[in-house]
Design a protein around this nucleic acid. Structure first.
Lengths: 189, 189, 189, 189
DNA sequence: TATGAATGAGCCTTCATTCAT
DNA sequence: CATGAATGAAGGCTCATTCAT
């Protein structure tokens, strides 16, 4: 991906997420993206090597801007607070970016996912794992294998956000708090 | 006259699940299924009208045999016990049928899902919702909107089972109990 | 074509003409014929070697029973009378056998027509040509190359009959006489 | 950028008519057209939405250029003269475009004909009907239902042209005049 | 850099024919 | 004779990618 024109890349990204949420990943074609982005089919190949790369770049972009970017700034907070901030941010981002969430959801289990993207996904999971390990030491979190705890957080967040995107639910503080309450009860010691 | 062979549908189903878990749904072609099932391409169309129908029938078959079929038999049990039996069975089925789980996971969010299949999915969800409502009346379950509780159970089960399928984890009673414990803490009042 | 069961051959012929007039020759499949004739697909191949042969046999059967069979008996009549009888019979047969006419029409210009069938068609044309030649000698018919006269008779009969089959016109004596009048004026000296 | 080539449609049309006259409509495949036209299979779909559309467009093109286009310019001529001009032009066009005539003939009774094409066909027939009606008022044409007169003109023209195409007859003025003479005698009062 | 016409491998599906029963 | 499940070659069409302009 050449960084020749950032606006164009964004236009392509927006067209891709919108189309995916409208038609589904399986009906997403390069020419439909080009059409939606009001450019020629070949132009896409100036910015991306292939369809696979385009989708992976988009996923990475969304993962970083929607999740990973907010992790570093909260490491000084107490553990439960950290979880709450992450939970709250993840939920807020996802609900206010429903097209993006639908894209991420469809992409995550597709055959397009590259090794590299898969690793990026794990970065976030590792951050969560570290947090959980820390919580176990502080005797706050259930002393249980992470592979039993992580799927709960991950699966709940994804499923909840996706459902809310589909149902077009407006995210209130009450929903954030209640859902976090459920989460926390699940993992707390 | 060659008798219409009932095993053939099963052969097709097995070939389909195996191929999906090997290559992914997007690379699953009718001719690859035929090849894997050691029959001609056209034979598939004797048993199914289309690729879409084949996949939907397979999904329905797996959903019923893996989940729905055990629901009626447990309605006399106390609530928590019912949840445990369902949880335990869902997990057991999924872990011992990893190809099937991967297929179900990929299919569920694909563009192949028919209206009818979607409704069958909702049947199971409704059963869970009824159970939750009953629990709320008994003051055992958190008095919270079902749309906050269901995604937890649904998302956790799917994500956990998928992860275990990928990691080829052997399901022990300890894992079943621990994961159920997590679940129950999440939803209990 | 084995002559094992004449009833069956007729059943097959009827199914074929009906289906062709309902769906068109291009949608006529061997299995649809079998289904309509209430027999198995393979049974058709006991009576006919191939689809091509079936259709050619049917065409020949219709051509003979509807046209050629009545030619020999009228050779003693005066020329104009002969033309009238042929015209009248051709028209009557075709109008009261609209499915058959539609089949013949679609088949005649299809790629199924065999050499042999094509020759049979010419037999009828030759009979007409002989009649025309005779008429020219008697100075009754225009002294003109047959290749200019025959297409008129042939084209008019086919087109008229086909149109009447489509419009479901009831054939009256008046129509027979009027159309013959048109024909005769065209070719008479 | 490669400019969308207007000749390409003509190349496709020529390939299609040639192939149809060589192999018949039923053996006409999109890939055979592409091969004959020396382009890729997919290119056909840049210019036409489907095989059906391609064939209908070609038929319409031939009908308009070969028949309909000359109708408006002759309305000031006396009736018999109009008939002669039409007859003469139709014949000339058809004889010098034998592949096209064979295509039109095969296409006209195929299952590809769209509603729209069918209507275009009727336009020409209506023009002829109007001419006949006018002739009846002038007492020049037989006072007879059009559905008896039109099939003669239509059937004769098609059958004659097709036969001449097959026999590769060279069209002389004598043939035009003689065949018109036959026609006129048929319909004149 | 930008365009979009052109490419062609590959997909789903059909259907004439065969063959085991 | 009769059956109809099984076959597999081919057809229409799609779409990621290339390339001439």
């Amino acid at each position: 991906m050449r960084v020749k024109d950032d606006t164009k890349v964004n236009t392509i990204f927006e067209a891709t997420t919108k189309l995916t949420s409208e038609l589904g990943l399986s009906r997403l074609t390069m020419s439909s993206i080009a059409k939606k982005a009001k450019m020629a089919c070949g132009t896409l190949y100036i910015y991306f090597d292939s369809k696979e790369q385009l989708l992976n770049e988009l996923y990475k972009h969304l993962l970083i801007s929607g999740t990973l970017s907010l992790l570093p700034s909260i490491q000084h907070l107490p553990l439960k607070k950290q979880f709450f901030v992450i939970w709250s941010n993840v939920l807020k981002f996802r609900v206010s970016n429903s097209c993006e969430v639908i894209f991420m959801h469809q992409f995550r289990y597709s055959s397009f996912v590259s090794e590299e993207t898969s690793n990026l996904d794990k970065q976030f999971l590792n951050f969560i794992k570290d947090l959980l390990d820390q919580g176990k030491e502080e005797l706050i979190i259930k002393n249980m294998d992470n592979c039993l705890l992580v799927p709960l957080l991950y699966g709940y967040a994804n499923t909840l956000a996706r459902q809310m995107a589909i149902d077009k639910v407006v995210l209130t503080d009450a929903i954030i708090e209640q859902s976090f309450h459920v989460c926390w009860d699940a993992i707390k010691s």
